[in-house]
């Protein structure tokens, strides 16, 4: 019989991904309702120093799969490692992050295990009657929500960043670390990673910025960018974008906010010349305050924002920047 909730914790060198806390927080609630154990699994190479943190976050057991073949994420290697490890652990629920790795690993692994996965969930619960996992996720680009369930095991879900509350770390929590041996051969890995290239813009990371100034298609070109950049600097914030600026190469894809870009939860999100499509809002609706600048009073962004100005950014931005400078004395 499958038992327990297992969290896939992504190793980042000797550290773990910041999402681990959110996933363990979500997993703990489910495990408590089921009256079962919360465990974590870390897959990679030279990851052994990570577990203490994961135990402080609530995992009773931390399974570690450590192999030189797992140094970089490669689909074939990770799917096979997880398939073998899950065969030994036999969990009934497996949670992963909706991240670069989770997006690729979760579906392929679910098909390998002849079970299913619900991607990008923002709410998880246990059905009181059936004890099955209820997976709630935005669909149709965020225009609707759906609740799914299935009975094949393990029940898998990926979780949207910043949608779950992390549990406070408690260093007095106890847990054990269990190495898991898997059999991986280089010949199993059919892809070859040639190189990894970073294209991030300099400065504060989008996910960590307290203020984000984001531009949309209506900014039409690089000139407006200078102004946005100046505004972002005033707030020590970052510049984000909707998809069209990325498609037009005005800004690297690492700065895209939305369903298929980054999920951000800054204090302030200033959306300039962005219409507020559901796919864009999927990435920023968790911002504490949204401010919109748009020349179209009917734009959907005004249904999502807390404050707004109707007008052309070419007139609005310079005056706004001047006033902010005056108010902040910079």
């Amino acid at each position: 019989m499958e038992k327990g909730v297992l969290i896939f914790v992504e190793a980042q060198g000797a550290n773990v991904s910041p999402m681990a806390g959110e996933l363990l927080g979500a997993g703990k609630k489910l495990a408590d309702v089921l009256g079962e154990e919360l465990a974590a699994i870390i897959v990679g190479n030279q990851v052994a120093s990570s577990p203490p943190e994961v135990i402080a976050w609530g995992a009773k057991k931390v399974y570690v799969v450590d192999d030189p073949i797992l140094k970089d994420y490669q689909t074939d290697a990770y799917v096979s490692a997880m398939e073998q490890a899950l065969g030994q652990i036999q969990p009934q629920v497996v949670l992963m992050g909706q991240t670069e790795i989770g997006r690729d690993l979760a579906p392929r692994l679910a098909f390998r295990l002849k079970t299913s996965v619900s991607m990008d969930c923002t709410e998880l619960a246990i059905d009181p009657q059936t004890k099955l996992l209820l997976q709630s996720r935005p669909v149709y680009g965020g225009n609707a929500r759906a609740v799914f369930t299935f009975s094949t095991k393990p029940q898998m879900a990926t979780v949207r960043a910043k949608s779950m509350e992390p549990l406070a770390k408690d260093p007095s929590r106890q847990g054990e670390t269990i190495p898991i041996k898997v059999d991986l051969k280089p010949a199993q890995i059919r892809t070859r990673l040639v190189k990894r290239v970073k294209e991030e813009v300099a400065g504060i990371k989008l996910e960590e910025a307290r203020v984000i100034v984001a531009c949309g298609r209506g900014m039409a070109g690089a000139e407006g960018f200078k102004q946005l950049d100046a505004l972002a600097r005033l707030f020590k914030g970052a510049v984000g974008a909707s998809r069209p600026p990325v498609d037009n190469n005005w800004i690297p894809s690492s700065q895209q906010v939305g369903l298929t870009g980054k999920i951000v939860t800054p204090e302030v999100y200033i959306a300039v010349a962005i219409s507020g499509s559901s796919q864009h809002m999927a990435g920023c609706s968790g911002a504490k305050t949204i401010v919109a600048v748009n020349k179209d009073p009917e734009a959907n962004i005004f249904k999502e924002a807390r404050f707004g100005v109707v007008g052309d950014w070419k007139q609005v931005l310079p005056a706004f920047i001047e006033k902010i400078k005056e108010l902040t004395g910079s």
């Binding site: 807390r306 404050f307 007139q315 609005v316 005056a319 006033k323 108010l327």
Partner: peptide
């Protein structure tokens, strides 16, 4: 959602008022 639209005599004026608000 309820959005507070900050108005002004012209877009630049509205922008300054938005900063104040």
């Amino acid at each position: 959602g309820k959005c507070e639209i900050v108005a002004g005599e012209n877009p630049a004026d509205a922008a300054a008022k938005l900063a104040l608000r």
